[in-house]
């Protein structure tokens, strides 16, 4: 990806992220967060993670943000009035954020692979395809794509999820079910209290 596009999408992600924190109106915050996630999805795609970028848009910018907007509008939350700005909290937040940012910048600059560019860590799709075709557990649908130089990102993701992390995936399904039941229980009106 050209450097210009990286800076553009990084700017979208961080600029709208700043809007989330600064905006007084919660609806503005929610829409800014959706835009920030779109920029982040573009960054994911620039890292050849097409599947993750797609579910970032579908799940975050789609489902999660619609849920946020729905709750904001359901509860009819007004924009925060600036009657009492909590100066201590704001100063604390700025200091904490700045310290963390400096810390991360220092650590990431000291990391031994930090000056690795995408060209240095080039993917070798044809070799990976040949290597996969030579094994007994070869999946032709993946190795054929790799041999012609296409990255079958979703297929490889499915392979990793169902071959290596099958149990974890089932635990995740259980978690989603518990979450669904929890939401129903939480939003149900307690009949005895209502009476």
């Amino acid at each position: 990806m050209p450097a210009l596009l990286f800076y553009l999408f990084a700017l979208i992600t961080l600029g709208f992220g700043l809007m989330v924190v600064l905006a007084r109106n919660p609806v503005t915050s929610a829409l800014s967060l959706a835009m920030s996630f779109v920029g982040l999805a573009a960054l994911f795609i620039s890292l050849d993670a097409f599947f993750i970028g797609t579910i970032q848009i579908l799940v975050y910018a789609g489902a999660v943000m619609v849920l946020f907007l729905f709750i904001i509008m359901l509860l009819d939350i007004k924009a925060e009035s600036d009657r009492k700005t909590n100066v201590a909290a704001i100063v604390g937040a700025i200091v904490l954020g700045a310290v963390l940012a400096v810390q991360i910048a220092t650590v990431s600059a000291a990391h031994h692979q930090s000056d690795l560019s995408v060209n240095d860590a080039a993917l070798n799709l044809v070799a990976a395809g040949n290597q996969m075709a030579a094994t007994k557990t070869d999946l032709p649908t993946i190795s054929k794509d790799l041999k012609v130089g296409i990255l079958p990102d979703t297929k490889l993701m499915g392979l990793a999820l169902f071959q290596q992390y099958g149990f974890h995936l089932q635990v995740m399904g259980l978690l989603l079910m518990v979450g669904t039941v929890g939401v129903v229980v939480l939003s149900k009106r307690d009949k005895e209290v209502a009476r």
Binding site: T13, L14, G17, S36, L96
Partner: peptide
Amino acid sequence: IVSGLLFALGLA
């Protein structure tokens, strides 16, 4: 660094 800045923004 982009990720760190985003995290710092969220924390703030």
